[in-house]
Amino acid sequence: MDFLLKVPRDLVFHLGRYMIMMGNVFSKPEKMRVYWKEITRQMDDIGIGSIVIVCLISIFMGAVAAIQFAYQLDGQLVPRYYIGYIVRDLAIIESAPTITCLVLAGKVGSNMAAELGGMRQKEHIDAMEIMGVNTSAFLIMPKLTAALVVIPLLVIISAFVAICGGYIATVPTGEITADDYIRGVRAFFDPHNVTMMFIKSIVFSYILTTVSCYQGYFVKGGSIELGEASTRAVVISNILILTADYVIAVLLTG
């Protein structure tokens, strides 16, 4: 019985603490110049630091999608140029925002949780608190701002690279001609899909940043607990990203 009560009680506790933390994150910065310096550092960390892994994953994502569709369409009456069309829409609507953010939750999210957790354990956060710094704002707001700016840009790159990946996988191998692939990529374009991609990337960036920072900021104990917090940051971010993906899909395609 106690266990049954513990789950909703913990959920309410964490939700409440998360809301209070976010309230502090959005309070007025002490010194905008110091925050701006931190935002640019985080942009560099998240953006430049993740560009290689995002490109690598996206190129294979596009390549595999193109080959799979080429295989599925083999012998069907569906025109071959549909491969380009399907790869483009799959990249824009789903794979670029979702897969990129799932990967970033693993790379950037765990890094944020470990960084803040380490600062908590080494009393850096206490030291800042005693100086009078609003630590939630100073440590989390620059990460969140940087993520909200940089991750959508990474998603655009991811979508572009995935479409290129589809081209590389199908055109040189003779599955489809270059003209057909490009015709497919240009066919039936709906700008609403791009809007959906941006909405998803912003929502997912918010989730992965705030959840990871929450896990790191309130870490207690030693290195084992820090490792657990880092893992929890990735697992919870991924679950929430996939849930949000479903909700956005229902809302924006209904």
């Binding site: 080494k122 009393e123 850096h124 206490d126 608190e129 005693i130 100086m131 009078g132």
Partner: peptide
């Protein structure tokens, strides 16, 4: 008040 406070931590922090 905390802006009037200085603190030295055990691990220096």
């Amino acid at each position: 008040i905390r802006m009037k406070v200085g603190m030295l931590f055990q691990g220096s922090a």
